[in-house]
């Protein structure tokens, strides 16, 4: 990976990370976070870990970020509301956590000569082909049974979520239609 490109991507990641925590609008925060994750994915690919890079983008941006957006949308969080909360104690706790993480990272960075060693690895290391070979030989049973796990989860979810036929449910009586049409019901977070 060329040095200037790395510098550009690294700077972009830091700027996007600041954007994530400094934006007022929650949607903008999530988009900033998505940019950080995409940026990291590109960095991985530049370092030769193509599969990890793609997985990073597919899993984090494709699945988890979309879930974030869904939750924000479902909870109907207003922009610029409920984001600023947290007393002095919470801020102190956050500062301590951030300081601990930074200290940990610096310690690892300066005390681990192995990390700075340049080692050559097999050219196909981390490639999709290598991953597939392991996945479909050594971990074949795990791979196939995971699909059954997902199937069981889908069947269970459908069984619990599908419309009840016959008599109406005793729980959760339908809300009055006129009110529901104007303002979507705001759900409580337990």
């Amino acid at each position: 990976m060329p040095q200037p490109l790395f510098a550009f991507l690294a700077a972009l990641a830091i700027i996007a990370a600041f954007g994530t925590i400094l934006q007022r609008n929650l949607i903008h925060c999530v988009l900033g976070f998505a940019l950080v994750l995409i940026d990291l994915g590109v960095l991985y690919m530049g370092l030769g870990a193509v599969t990890v890079g793609f997985l990073q983008i597919i899993v984090y941006v494709g699945a988890i970020m979309v879930l974030f957006l869904f939750v924000i949308w479902l909870l109907n969080v207003q922009a610029d509301a409920g984001v600023r909360g947290g007393g002095l104690g919470l801020k102190l706790l956050g500062a301590i956590g951030a300081a601990a993480l930074a200290a940990e990272l610096f310690t690892i960075f300066f005390n681990a000569p192995k990390l700075r060693e340049v080692r050559t690895i097999a050219p196909d290391f981390g490639s999709v082909a290598t991953l597939a070979r392991v996945l479909f030989s050594q971990y074949l049973v795990a791979f196939e049974t995971t699909s059954l796990l997902l199937l069981a989860a889908i069947v269970g979810a459908i069984a619990l979520a599908r419309r009840l036929v016959g008599q109406t449910a005793r729980i959760a009586p339908p809300a009055p239609r006129s009110a529901a049409a104007e303002t979507p019901p705001r759900r409580e977070v337990a």
Binding site: T145, L148, L149, A152, A153, V155, G156, A157, A159, L160
Partner: peptide, 10 residues
């Protein structure tokens, strides 16, 4: 997990 997810739903 397969067992648990099925039993949660049941």
């Amino acid at each position: 997990e397969t067992m648990s997810l099925a039993v949660y739903a049941l």
